[in-house]
């Protein structure tokens, strides 16, 4: 087994060409658990933690934001990133513990592609674009095409996830999750709501209630017909409740060691109702 520690994307891609079977590791908060418990015995590793290019973010001229795959969650929780993408800050703050948030990254969340990944519902609600780079090409993929199943994504073995681009919306956005306690918990159900007033769009994405993150297109359309999204008007409690019920109908949860399908469906409806109520009262 070898471990390569590249200092640039170019060096990382060279390392990947030299050892095509290598596993890419970012913060290590998922993969090291598998290695510690002997569920994974990698032949070769490429550690991306020292690639500074991946640890930066940029505000683009077209009112979008590109976040490098190596930016740790702790950087999204506060400061300018929190102002720009509040829902991502809220999601980041629910990830594990301060120790996990110092190490864990959005790139790792995308690489692992767990339906319970806390960053992913935000990326789905914002219609994020994932940036992938190989030795001789780069491509952009919608997050909706990137995540294809439970812990499965469309990344090719010769590609590195370099970052994501999200639009900077004009409207309320937030994230909520249910777990067995307040800190240090993997989602039982989660939801991200984002409103964009200029385009009169409301987006809601659900985590941990299906094989991929789920966008509730029917509930989104229904809600946009009930309220004037371009205005900051209060939303009727009955509308919020019905929105929750419709969102729950679009979830596809299963029973597993963390919860039951029945509870997840109920919880995700409550989360949607709470999010739209928070949006309405802000």
């Amino acid at each position: 087994m070898t471990v390569a520690i590249p200092l640039s994307i170019r060096e990382a891609l060279d390392a990947l060409s030299n050892t095509p079977d290598a596993r890419l590791i970012q913060g290590g908060t998922d993969m090291m658990v598998e290695i510690n418990f002997n569920h994974l015995k990698p032949h070769n590793m490429i550690a991306l933690r020292r690639v500074q290019e991946l640890r930066t973010w940029t505000k683009n001229a077209d009112n979008t934001l590109t976040i490098g795959s190596g930016v740790p969650y702790q950087e999204m929780e506060t400061g300018e990133l929190k102002q720009l993408v509040p829902a991502l800050a809220e999601a980041a703050r629910t990830v594990g513990s301060p120790q996990i948030r110092a190490a864990g990254t959005l790139g790792g969340n995308l690489g692992t592609c767990s339906p319970a990944g806390d960053g992913l519902p935000v990326l789905f609600a914002l219609d994020a674009i994932v940036h992938l780079q190989s030795a001789d090409a780069s491509r952009k993929l919608s997050i909706h095409d990137f995540m294809v199943g439970v812990k499965r994504n469309a990344r090719n073995a010769n590609e590195i996830i370099t970052g994501v681009t999200v639009p900077l919306l004009d409207g309320w956005q937030g994230y909520a999750k249910v777990g067995v306690r307040n800190a240090m918990v993997i989602s039982v159900a989660s939801a991200c709501l984002a409103i964009d007033k200029p385009t009169r769009s409301v987006r809601i994405a659900l985590g941990a209630v299906g094989p991929t993150i789920i966008r509730c297109r029917d509930a989104e359309v229904w809600l946009s017909e009930q309220i004037d999204i371009s205005a900051s008007t209060a939303i009727d409690a009955a509308v919020a409740k019905e929105f929750g019920r419709r969102v729950a109908l679009e979830s596809k949860p299963i029973d597993d060691h963390r919860s039951t399908a029945e509870y997840r469906r109920h919880a995700v409806g409550v989360l949607a109702q709470r999010l739209i109520t928070r949006a309405s009262s802000s």
Binding site: V3, I5, I25, G28, M32, N36, A47, Q99, I100, A102
Partner: peptide, 15 residues
């Protein structure tokens, strides 16, 4: 940064 050393692959901590 405060991190969990169980989740750091030691060899990647060179430097």
């Amino acid at each position: 940064d405060a991190v969990c050393s169980c989740l750091v692959m030691a060899a990647t901590a060179v430097g």
